[in-house]
Design a protein around this nucleic acid. Structure first.
Lengths: 223, 223
DNA sequence: CGATAAATTTAGTATAATCTAAAATAGATT
DNA sequence: AATCTATTTTAGATTATACTAAATTTATCG
């Protein structure tokens, strides 16, 4: 009786994964905000995830949560589904880079392992999704990130956009219009140490980043 | 606050649609069996679907249910999703005719209208799914069926297999092996009026139908 | 026609995930 | 150290869907 995880639990695990990528624990409140659920509900669910066997999270009152090995596997499974789906929807149904997230968000919980394998094979086992995010491997390991945030670049440096992380649909559309998407070659023109913003030349087009988003854009091997 | 129907309700409506295609009402027990839910649970849900506003089903104690206009639209929406998905998964991910049903069963509830439109457009707005079943139109009308059950054929008649209805994965695999799938030309060799079984020649291969499945196979314009 | 079987409904219970309101705790500020 | 504030937890209620067991209605058949 292989009782599979509910959508709700998969979502908790996915967001805990993302919130703990920096090594810190995920707080009740941060989870509450991301999941659009009240903090009290998070406490409840997290207590359940910690007491289930095998435990999916490590949890101590007021100290937030981290994933156990099992929890991490389950999270990476969902993230793999999500990123493969994004890649595949863009390739086969002409979704734009910006639109695809929401659709994948719902599908990621219901596709079979067979579906996952077929997509991966059909695309030649891609390493990154359309936003440039790394796709966990079939055996559920997250590959090492080898790119650098755009904010680390200095004037005159050249680089290639590798990924745009944690951005909402509006920002993605904006960047798409600027031509600032994965694969594009850029050159740093100006730098303000005050707000850590850069002005860059993306491809042929000059683009001004008036927004503080340089920590969301990652580039390949900074020159 | 556009509160969309839950998966559970969509499933009830879909199965009520299928059970009432013959004009009869869907009984509590029949629904219970198809949905793998106890009869008492069906009564509960069906009472709810009848009392919700606008009502999704018409219901009277001991008389079973039929769909209202709204209920039918909702059912056809799910069925359209299902059949487009089947067609699309077969075409783009190489699923076999027999395997695809289960996957579509889960996806049908979570894809967006946008996804539906994109699939339909990508395939040139197909009229039938891989099993030959008619696909409801974008405005949620079920096209008229113009095929005949195989059981209506008599010896020597020739026909083309149009669809195979309500068959489980095992039977579909069996038929696939025989080569008895949509599009194949067949000839009736023998007929037993006792059990309504036919022996037919499918394409080049001689096939014996020892099972009582001639009412599940439909053919185009019987000669 | 009335007995019995089958199908259906009622009534009460269970579980999962959420909510609100109130209580408790931790961390920061004097 | 005392207090304030923000975060987190507890407790209890709610919603949706299912379950079991018992009661009831309908159907069947001798």
């Amino acid at each position: 009786m292989e009782s599979s995880l509910t959508i709700s639990i998969q979502d908790y695990l996915k967001h805990i994964y993302e919130l703990t990528e920096d090594g810190k624990n995920a707080s009740t409140n941060a989870l509450s905000e991301r999941l659009n659920v009240k903090p009290a509900s998070v406490t409840n669910m997290v207590q359940k995830l910690a007491s289930v066997k095998p435990a999916l999270v490590e949890y101590q009152k007021h100290q937030g949560v981290t994933l156990t090995k099992e929890g991490r596997k389950a999270a990476l499974e969902v993230i793999r589904h999500h990123r493969l789906l994004e890649a595949w929807l863009v390739q086969t149904l002409g979704y734009s880079w910006a639109e695809v997230h929401e659709e994948a968000e719902r599908l990621e919980h219901v596709i079979s392992e067979d579906f996952e394998r077929r997509m991966a094979a059909a695309m030649g086992h891609p390493l990154r999704d359309p936003h440039g995010e790394l796709i966990p491997t079939a055996d559920l390991v997250m590959p090492l990130e080898d790119s650098t945030p755009l904010s680390a670049l200095r004037p005159k440096q050249k680089a290639k956009v590798q990924s745009v992380k944690n951005a909402d649909a509006e920002l993605l559309r904006y960047l798409e219009n600027l031509g600032l998407l994965p694969g594009v070659q850029i050159t740093v023109l100006d730098y303000s140490s005050f707000d850590h913003n850069l002005t860059v030349k993306a491809g042929a087009k000059v683009s001004v980043l008036g927004l503080n988003i340089t920590s969301k854009i990652f580039v390949e091997h900074p020159g």
